[in-house]
Write a protein that binds this DNA or RNA. Structure first.
Lengths: 201, 201
DNA sequence: GCAATATATTGAACAGTGTTCAGAATGTAA
DNA sequence: TTACATTCTGAACACTGTTCAATATATTGC
């Protein structure tokens, strides 16, 4: 039995989340069970319910961390050319999804059993991600208003997300020589070019 | 006890798949259990293992049917203008995903526990889907070779898929007034326009 | 230092899951 | 009618998330 007050609530929660990430990384989502996480940190399964509402709650918290990690990775983009900037975003996104596949999958595929929506703080962080994209897009299209830029960002990023997902589950790509990075570059460049010539047609 | 030879193997399998789809449609993927399917058709859970290797196999077969259904829905596209054609494809895709969300989710999110790849016949049907797109694209860009068209189709469809997915899990769209159909139209039109002016720049 | 109290943690239990397989139920042939 | 072959069940196993009475430990009051 773990001795009482060996760890504070916060410590316990942090330990559990780290253990969960370790399991996720090495054994995949299917292996992510309460008992496994608990064993990993030397507690019983029941103890997890002192710091998490349920399995869903644990997943949401994992997703919060994953999203934060992704945002941090995207921080490193810094170049003058806005198109180059968008391309780098896309490339980092793809790399992140490739390196952290189980965490990334959980982030985008986890849904609660009962139709509980994602917590608000998670939505806020997603909003943050989109704002990052709006910046270079606004630079490309200074004549467009915020609503138009916002929609472009979501459309383009939906596209990047889709190519990334289909690339990861490679069953959807039969010609093996197709490089997803090249596809993303193409998507970003072509989309922005198409939007540029819209007015002048 | 179900009487022996009440149904042939094929009948049993068909009944099970239909029952599974009913459960999927009304109660979601989480509710799709062997015992529930079996009860629904008046057999015991064990009987399912006479016609399915395991739960995964049942899911793959469901996905085969879903993909077939999707392909059939896409048959109805028929118009002269290739861009209009692509837009219709995208719209049908979105509608299908909206109407048959649980089946569509299973199709794109189901992965076997052990890294078993999707069966070959499923990959073939996906290839069929891509070929449908290559036709109007080839019409738009007669100067490009097959490999380039093939890659364009996959890039564009990755985009459509991504926008569809992010739209269905609406948590990713904070400004509610954005219409996914409009976003898909924009994506298709802008991408094709961008690709059109590539040579002439 | 010791008893009383409060709380952190466990471990057994419950209902569910996928899966297997001995044996019962049923049809067919001799 | 008996023997055989096949179909199907139902109990069992190991797992899951989750709850909660009981227990082990720490803190407080004396």
């Amino acid at each position: 039995m773990a001795r009482r007050s060996d760890h504070s609530r916060e410590e316990l929660q942090e330990m559990a989340l780290e253990a969960a990430e370790r399991i996720l990384d090495t054994q995949g989502e299917a292996a992510l069970s309460a008992r496994k996480v608990a064993t990993e940190i030397g507690y019983s399964a029941g103890a997890l319910y002192l710091v998490f509402q349920n399995r869903d709650d644990l997943c949401w918290q994992l997703n919060g961390r994953t999203l934060q990690k992704l945002l941090t990775a995207l921080e490193h983009v810094n170049c003058e050319d806005p198109i180059e900037c968008l391309k780098q975003f896309a490339e980092i996104y793809l790399t992140f999804a490739t390196v952290w596949t189980p965490r990334w999958s959980l982030l985008f595929e986890h849904r609660s059993a009962d139709d509980v929506d994602a917590p608000q703080w998670l939505s806020n962080r997603i909003d943050e991600l989109f704002r990052k994209l709006e910046q270079p897009l606004a630079q490309c299209f200074p004549q467009l208003d915020q609503a138009a830029i916002s929609q472009m960002a979501r459309t383009l990023w939906g596209g990047v997300h889709g190519v990334t997902i289909l690339s990861l589950r490679d069953k959807l790509f039969l010609n093996q020589q197709a490089d997803p990075r090249q596809m993303l570059d193409d998507l970003v460049e072509t989309y922005v070019r198409g939007a540029s010539v819209k007015g002048s047609m």
